[in-house]
Design a protein around this nucleic acid. Structure first.
Length: 602
RNA sequence: GGCCCCGUCGUCUAGCCUGGUCCAGGACACCACCCUUUCACGGUGGUGACGAGGGUUCGAAUCCCUCCGGGGUCACCA
């Protein structure tokens, strides 16, 4: 029996921060490709590898965070670092067992490149003996100077191969200098030939001979460069399809050239050139590349605008208010750094939202993982199908993607990230939930990001979210919106102010007609039992009827409802009164009305 | 600047490979109206694009060329 064909895709993040929205899409497409392959009887596998060869910027916490972000999105890997996540039962909100994502069933790990250095060195040795790699001793400063000279002379800078290095010849002198401990990097002898990359999305991309120079494959610290490690690992991990962002396209000829030069150490066979597919990048609405620096930019702008309006605001005052200190703030404002921490602190100080860039940001802002997945999939891919109404099908889930994904339908042009459309998708998903499901999701989100508010709300009524759910769902575009919607219930009964404009319009106008209505409503409410949303609604209608607010179309409850709203919320906007008053409870409602009547004094 | 990639409504896109059914369809946003106790939701309708110019063809969003525009990349980062 023939072996089952294998299709392996991989996502290879460097653990230097959170998972970027663009990275999430790359991961999603790789995952989808592998899953789709299974329908054709292929053993499709999605692999994760952590590219931590940058010693100074990588961290384990970051690696873990990225894995957790992927798991949150529901993108699970077949080969890769292990991550324990809450088990199936936790979906219902109960604490259940845990299960593990990842592992190494094929024995191709470890999946952290820092633990694979011996492997890289063995291949570099082989390359050295084949005369395809050599030590180079120029210092970074020297190279910088050469680069600057070239730019000044308007020449294209390329590293010039030392005259004593001959392709195909093992360079004993250089290697012995290297062995003796002299600081050096190792460079790859780039062949003098045309390299063609067969890209499954873009078609053939040719690179003319002489276009590329001898790239560094091992840094002075002994770690491989990204380019080299990728090539070795993709081969050793059996990666067959490389789907990644277009920013890597220009690097691909280098990778292909190395694959041609390398042989496996175990069986002497040449490296396999994987199938490549470079997908378009995701940019901001202004066309710039989406970057975590955008958060710093937004915070900086908010601070500068405020300082321009109010000269008393200075880096010093901000430094002390945010607890960041004056030097950190002034450095940040001068653009010397893009510290995420300072950006967050300033955004908090000026109460401006920072743009969501990383998955973690979207999660905190109350976006649903399935919506992020759906939306991001649409950036660069679409199923090309119609829904039951004959409209373009654009709402779908992970299983759908796993079933229908194909490289053929990945676009070639870059796309802009339209936050308004994302928000609309999120709102639609929330509106489509059952109330029970909505409550579970909201509680989980609150427990993570607003635990104090959750406690306050449920102290008022343990069933508060359940009561409000039907009113909340069409009003909340994100889970975080719930905070704003329930603000009235979070306030102390005597702890909110009455908006003067709302008081004027709904209570004082017409000689205090609103206040009169409020008194009438109060007496209906005071004798109400049971205290349910429906009963409250009926009581308000009765009050309106009693006051004569009846037209040929029926009872007009507005003149009664608005004064109540101002009384219980302080403003003329709130969720529907039935649910709102039900959550407050009878005693609090009456107390709020009484305080309003007293303070307004009409 | 060199090299490379891309170019349909403001945005995401369907259509392009296999020219005619496209005076270009959908979604988001926007505008108007309806519904309505506020805010939302919802309903109906509307504004709005084949980057430009040349070819090829009876016929081009679809094929070819040029130009223009946008992006990527040129590290001992990944």
């Amino acid at each position: 029996m023939a072996p089952i064909p294998l299709a392996v895709t991989r996502f290879a993040p460097s653990p230097t921060g959170h998972l970027h929205i663009g990275g999430a899409r790359s991961a999603l497409f790789c995952w989808a490709f592998a899953r789709r392959a299974r329908r054709d009887g292929i053993d499709g596998r999605f692999l994760i590898r952590i590219e931590d060869t940058d010693q100074t910027r990588s961290s384990d916490e970051s690696a873990r965070g990225i894995l957790e972000d992927l798991a949150w999105l529901g993108i699970e890997w077949d080969d890769g670092p292990e991550l324990k996540v809450a088990g199936e039962s936790s979906r219902s909100g109960e604490t259940g067992g845990t299960r593990t994502i990842g592992g190494d069933p094929r024995g191709v790990g470890p999946f952290f490149q820092a633990r694979r250095v011996a492997l890289y060195n063995a291949h570099i040795d082989a390359l050295a003996h084949a005369g395809r790699a050599y030590p180079a001793f120029e210092t970074p400063e020297e190279l910088d100077a050469r680069r600057r000279d070239a730019i000044a002379a308007k020449r294209t800078y390329r590293y010039e191969r030392p005259a004593d290095v001959l392709p195909g010849v093992f360079h004993e002198q250089r290697w012995s200098r290297a062995r003796s401990g002299e600081r050096h990097v190792v460079r790859f002898v780039f062949p003098e030939e045309e390299v063609i990359v067969h890209d499954s999305i873009l078609g053939d991309v040719r690179t003319a001979p002489g276009e590329l120079d001898d790239l560094v494959i091992r840094k002075a610290d002994g770690f491989p460069t990204y380019h080299f490690a990728v090539v070795i690992d993709d081969e050793l991990m059996g990666v067959t399809h490389v789907l990644r962002a277009q920013e890597h396209l220009a690097n691909t000829p280098r990778h292909v050239a190395m694959q041609r030069a390398l042989r496996r150490l175990d069986n002497g066979r040449p490296f396999t050139v994987p199938v490549y597919g470079h997908m378009p990048v995701i940019c901001n609405m202004d066309g710039s590349k989406m970057s975590k620096r955008d958060k710093a930019k937004a915070a900086r702008k908010a601070a500068r605008d405020a300082m321009a309006r109010d000269p008393s605001i200075t880096a010093a005052t901000l430094g002390s208010q945010t607890g960041m200190g004056e030097p950190a703030v002034s450095g940040f404002l001068a653009g010397e750094n893009d510290s995420a921490q300072t950006a967050e602190a300033l955004a908090g100080r000026f109460n401006v939202p920072l743009p969501e860039i990383e998955i973690w940001d979207f999660r905190r802002s109350g976006y649903l993982p399935e919506v992020i997945v759906n939306f991001v999939a649409l950036l660069g891919w679409n199923p090309g199908m119609k829904d039951a109404d004959g409209k373009d099908l654009e709402k779908f889930d992970l299983p759908f993607i796993a079933e229908h994904f194909s490289i053929d339908r990945v676009g070639r042009s870059s796309s802009k990230f339209d936050r308004a459309k994302l928000l609309s998708f999120n709102a639609d998903a929330i509106a489509a939930m059952t109330d029970d499901h909505f409550v579970r999701r909201v509680r989980r989100w609150f427990a993570e990001y607003e635990p104090g508010s959750l406690a306050t709300l449920e102290a008022r009524d343990p069933a508060a979210l359940g009561i409000l759910a039907p009113a909340l769902r069409p009003r909340c575009r994100t889970l975080r919106d719930v905070v704003r919607q329930v603000a009235f219930a979070l306030a102390q009964d005597n702890g909110y102010a009455f908006d003067p404009a709302a008081v004027e319009k709904h209570l004082r106008a017409g000689g205090g007609a609103g206040a009169l209505s409020l008194r009438e409503a109060r007496s209906h409410l005071a004798s109400l039992d049971p205290w349910s949303p429906e009963a409250i609604q009926v009581a308000i209608e009765q009050a309106a009827r009693r006051l004569g607010f009846v037209t040929e179309k029926g009872v007009n409850v507005g003149p009664v409802a608005q004064p109540i709203r101002v009384a219980i919320a302080g403003v003329s906007v709130s969720p529907p009164l039935g649910e709102s008053l039900a959550v407050l409870g009878k005693a609090a409602t009456l107390a709020r009305i009484d305080r309003c009547l007293k303070e307004v004094g009409v």
